Amino acid sequence: MNDEPILSARGLRLSFGAVRALDDVSIDLWPGEVLAIVGESGSGKSTLLRVLAGETRPDAGSVTYGDPQGGTRDVHGMTEAARRRLARTEWGFVHQDPRDGLRMAVSAGGNVGERLMAVGDRHYGNIREEAARWLERVEIPRSRIDDAPRLFSGGMRQRLQIARTLVTRPRLVFMDEPTGGLDVSVQARLLDLIRALVADLGIAVILVTHDIAAARLLAHRMVVMRQGRVVEEGLTDRVLDDPRHPYTQLLVSSVLAA
């Protein structure tokens, strides 16, 4: 791994009225690393993801991004235009509901091609061929390239969103419950696909999930959250095989008992 993290958060605090969503949260993500953030509903994990991605501003604390040139950028100090540009190029976001990450009225190929155009590609034939290759890579027949996402199943929509996100080979991808709401068999297939693509591209990923099995399969390290605080963190196998905090022990034992 590189000597410097690709994303760092220090002392993040955020409250919604009397509810403390984030309470002094600090984390690092290294280039090429997959970091899982796990916890029960209301633990603050999705709020943390939105803050790290620059979508929600914290009450206190900082988030810094290590850019490819070796410098650092204050995520919440950027202009909105700069953050949107970063999100279209060096970053990606995979939503739990693929409808939030796709343009439903645009063809499958058009969805993937838009990301390529955002990084400067202009040759229609090349864009269409690259989109077709990526559809195949996420197990969607290239014959569906002109079909709208509304004609796809939930699992196919999620795979299309992944193709749209990864086609530009971003350095950092945020994933918010990417297998949530899908059938178990579809979840397993999607997880295998994500693992293969992430390993092949060498991208850094922050994965929010309540699924311990998904975290074990995908993540190098794990952060466990409860009531807005990080209660345990470490290598995924260590955290799951030898949980030290009582809450982590409860999470792991509930999975084993299921």
Score class of each variant (00 low, 15 high):
236 T>D: 08
73 R>L: 13
107 S>I: 01
171 R>N: 05
93 F>E: 04
20 R>Y: 02
254 S>K: 07
110 G>Q: 11
121 D>C: 03
255 V>P: 00
239 V>Y: 13
175 M>C: 15
143 S>A: 14
29 L>M: 07
251 L>P: 08
67 D>L: 01
91 W>Y: 14
61 G>M: 08
36 A>I: 06
97 D>L: 09
80 E>R: 13
210 H>W: 11
115 R>Q: 09
108 A>R: 06
223 V>D: 03
198 V>R: 11
63 V>L: 09
58 P>W: 04
184 V>T: 14
210 H>C: 04
10 R>D: 10
197 L>T: 05
244 R>K: 14
178 P>W: 01
109 G>P: 09
91 W>N: 08
173 V>W: 02
50 R>G: 03
143 S>Q: 13
82 A>P: 04
28 D>T: 03
46 S>K: 11
245 H>I: 00
191 L>R: 10
72 T>L: 08
125 G>Q: 11
51 V>E: 03
191 L>Q: 13
211 D>W: 06
11 G>F: 10
45 K>I: 04
94 V>A: 02
84 R>Y: 05
114 E>I: 01
24 D>M: 05
154 G>Q: 12
54 G>A: 07
206 I>T: 09
218 L>K: 08
104 M>Q: 14
245 H>W: 08
81 A>W: 12
160 L>M: 03
225 M>V: 06
99 R>Q: 12
18 A>W: 03
172 L>S: 07
45 K>W: 06
212 I>N: 02
18 A>M: 06
3 D>A: 12
29 L>I: 11
228 G>V: 08
162 I>E: 12
30 W>Y: 15
131 A>L: 10
218 L>G: 05
66 G>Y: 06
37 I>N: 01
199 A>F: 04
72 T>E: 15
3 D>L: 05
177 E>M: 09
178 P>F: 01
53 A>Y: 09
169 R>L: 06
229 R>C: 05
21 A>C: 05
238 R>G: 00
228 G>N: 10
200 D>H: 10
205 V>K: 10
153 S>I: 05
111 N>T: 05
121 D>A: 12
88 R>H: 11
109 G>R: 08
242 D>K: 12
208 V>R: 06
66 G>L: 04
140 I>R: 04
3 D>S: 11
35 L>K: 07
190 L>Q: 07
159 R>Y: 14
126 N>M: 13
194 I>G: 10
92 G>R: 13
217 L>M: 12
205 V>F: 09
123 H>V: 08
76 H>D: 10
83 R>M: 12
195 R>I: 00
150 R>K: 05
177 E>S: 06
258 A>R: 15
116 L>C: 06
228 G>D: 11
78 M>I: 00
125 G>H: 10
43 S>R: 02
221 R>S: 08
26 S>I: 03
11 G>K: 15
85 R>Q: 15
164 R>V: 02
139 E>T: 06
189 R>T: 12
33 E>W: 09
55 E>K: 07
132 A>C: 08
257 A>D: 15
229 R>A: 15
241 D>S: 14
151 L>K: 15
9 A>N: 01
76 H>R: 09
196 A>C: 02
250 L>S: 14
216 R>C: 00
199 A>I: 05
71 G>D: 12
27 I>H: 01
141 P>Q: 11
257 A>T: 14
140 I>H: 04
173 V>A: 02
145 I>A: 07
133 R>S: 10
58 P>V: 05
141 P>L: 07
8 S>D: 03
153 S>W: 13
